[in-house]
Design a protein around this nucleic acid. Structure first.
Lengths: 244, 244
DNA sequence: CGTAGTATTGAAACGGATCAATATCTGTGG
DNA sequence: CCACAGATATTGATCCGTTTCAATACTACG
């Protein structure tokens, strides 16, 4: 079961393609910005490119924090095990997302690869130095964290909804938005399994299943297989996702 | 109803006592750090001290973002009105918290004073300059935002619980933790009203009320008045807050 | 091809939402 | 200082949807 992180990695600090790191502006105006060439090189100099098979646990809750990661390829989930034995998935992270932020020198959530992943790994002391020396690089991090804060707020809204169908609709719509800039629109890729989504949405696996079937029966979504869905009635999906 | 922000303020940029800004470390080690004297002065130079009566709306969702705020005194709530007409309170902010982070130049939530408040108001372009010039000052902001990210994650866990009593227990425990460094422990100050807490916890006002009464009947909490409670059985409160 | 993990379906019970009524508090003006 | 009005909080009864428990179908991987 789920080995712990031991990189099957390429230790040579290859130039990471951080070009694509999408950034939100924290404080206002300005559109999306990208790491400058100089910043990319700066990150590359201190990053290590590593690969892990799916299900690898990158780190456990409460473990001593050593690295911060940027996803290059693949999907990561971060969760917490509750005293009740239940599991709450707090977020799924996608390429260009940053994870591994610690509190008091310890990780706060357990983090696990959903698919095979390629990551950029940055030793924290080194990163700290780099941030201290370059305010504009640090701004990229500030923007990223702010973006994650928004995500977390959206998540808390999703989870506070009462109806299972509405929650699933919001989840699918969010995924669709995220993937719209990629391949053909309307096709949603679901790298994670149903149980993970259920834990993310705060639903039982059964309620999750029933909600999906209902969306299918009502001609809103069509699940071609377990990891792929198609939006049939986008207007109705929007209505369900909004209406609550 | 709830006038919009028009500061009944002291426009002279008085030296703000930002000394107390509690900071979490983002990347690891290191304990709580404070703004250095130099940083305090730097913030003071660009901050404006303003006061507002309770219920003042600081800004509305989607409004053009002009300022970022740091709370000096009082409580702020930030919420979003859902299409259903329901209201979801995303967070309560306390002294030393920062709010007003924008996305694409617009505020994302409506923000309103719960009590009379004193704030430090920083014009965004000015702040941006200051951050660009001082990486260590920026680090304070990064830490703050990271802390708020944690809060949001905790919130999503609270809200995903099914049982009303458990949610209220978690809320009260969190408040108690926050206030423990102040006056006599065991006494919880509730500046906000029941409806706000209900919106924060994703409960109906009725369910909120019933949960509080239940905690009282079971000898766990004693509500002396609407804005103050006393923890009678801390062990049991912890059990309820944890167990889910 | 078989097996373990994953997903679906059904029946029953529990808990919160809702609607409606009542009680209590707070602040304001007399 | 008291009385009143509007806001805030409590309580009761019913309904609905999710959880839970249990059983079955499906799928992917060796």
């Amino acid at each position: 079961m789920a080995q712990t992180a031991d990189p099957r990695g390429l230790p040579s600090p290859d130039l990471p393609s951080l070009k694509g790191v999408r950034l939100m502006d924290v404080e206002g105006n300005g559109p999306i910005r990208l790491l400058s060439a100089r910043q990319q090189q700066q990150v590359a100099a201190i990053a290590q490119r590593v690969q892990f098979p799916r299900r690898t646990v990158m780190y456990h809750e409460h473990a001593r924090a050593e690295f911060i990661y940027i996803i290059s390829r693949g999907i990561i989930k971060t969760y917490r095990n509750l005293p009740s034995g239940r599991r709450r998935v707090l977020a799924f992270w996608f390429p260009e997302d940053i994870f591994g932020l610690a509190q008091a020198g310890r990780y706060v959530n357990t983090t696990q690869a959903v698919t095979d992943v390629t990551l950029f790994r940055l030793a924290i002391p080194t990163l700290k130095e780099a941030l201290a020396q370059d305010a504009s690089l640090q701004l990229q991090f500030l923007c990223k964290v702010t973006h994650e804060l928004r995500q977390a707020q959206r998540h808390s809204i999703v989870v506070s909804r009462k109806d299972a169908v509405g929650r699933v609709a919001m989840f699918l719509r969010a995924l669709d938005d995220q993937e719209v800039q990629r391949e053909r629109p309307g096709v949603i890729d679901l790298p994670m399994n149903r149980a993970d989504v259920a834990d993310y949405l705060g639903l039982s696996a059964e309620a999750m299943s029933r909600a999906c079937r209902k969306l299918e029966r009502n001609g809103i979504i069509s699940f071609t297989n377990r990891h792929s869905a198609r939006v049939v009635d986008a207007r109705e999906l929007n209505r369900l996702a909004s209406g609550a």
